[in-house]
């Protein structure tokens, strides 16, 4: 069986490489926009405006309480219908993944901010620092160190969740496996190649996150 892997790679390597790019593309967009949206949501949640808090809470309640696949179906079927402009299937799916990711990112960031000792805020405010300066100069820099490791885990989840796009025949790593498998009727070796590329991607990401964490920790 093992000897089939180089043979498959030789013939269908390009399918996997295309698939890997697809996964990286989807994951990068999900990470980028999911993090921005999640950060904004955490600020709304931590604001003193009650209705905003409630809206974010309901948003998170729904997105964390239903399967990601179901959410993708929802965006896949409904987004094109109600948007005034054309949207590709891939864009619909990425939107669903971004919205889903934002709920988890919000939780990570909010928890990271709330984990900063209250005494830090009190000390800053007692010096006469404004609420805004206290947040940007005292709380957020410290929260960032709490947030980063957990955020790295979410990024890895996002890479793996991109595989859900294969159900909609979007080019990425899991659909690359399906393509090769249906062309060759060879299953396990085709699967192993996809798995190995996933592992390579997540390993590189983990190493990058470790590096950034170390950089940040070197000054305390």
């Amino acid at each position: 069986m093992g000897e089939l892997i180089p043979a498959i790679w030789q013939k269908y390597g390009y399918v996997y490489i295309q698939g890997a790019w697809g996964t990286v593309y989807i994951a990068l967009l999900t990470v980028f926009f999911g993090t921005i949206l999640g950060t904004l949501l955490s600020f709304l949640r931590l604001s003193r405006v009650r209705p905003l808090q409630w809206i974010v809470q309901v948003y998170i309640w729904i997105l964390r309480g239903t399967p990601t696949l179901l959410q993708i179906y929802f965006f896949y079927f409904y987004l094109p219908r109600y948007l005034p402009f054309e949207m590709s299937e891939r864009a619909c799916i990425i939107t669903a993944l971004v919205v889903n990711a934002s709920a988890y990112v919000e939780e990570v960031i909010r928890a990271g901010i709330q984990a900063v000792d209250r005494g830090q805020t009190e000390a800053a405010r007692s010096l006469g620092m404004t609420a805004r300066h206290t947040m940007t100069r005292i709380v957020l820099p410290q929260a960032f160190k709490n947030i980063l490791p957990a955020l790295g885990n979410e990024f890895i989840v996002m890479i793996k969740q991109a595989s859900l796009a294969s159900i909609f025949f979007i080019v990425e790593l899991t659909s690359a496996f399906k393509t090769v498998q249906s062309a060759t009727f060879i299953t396990i070796p085709a699967l192993i190649i996809s798995g190995a590329i996933y592992l390579a991607l997540t390993t590189v990401l983990s190493a990058l996150m470790k590096l950034v964490e170390k950089r940040l920790q070197s000054n305390d």
Binding site: A123, A124, L127, I138
Partner: peptide, 13 residues
């Protein structure tokens, strides 16, 4: 109005 706390609350970063 300066304030000094029991647990110092110096800024570690």
């Amino acid at each position: 109005i300066g304030m000094v706390f029991q647990h110092f609350n110096v800024f570690p970063h």
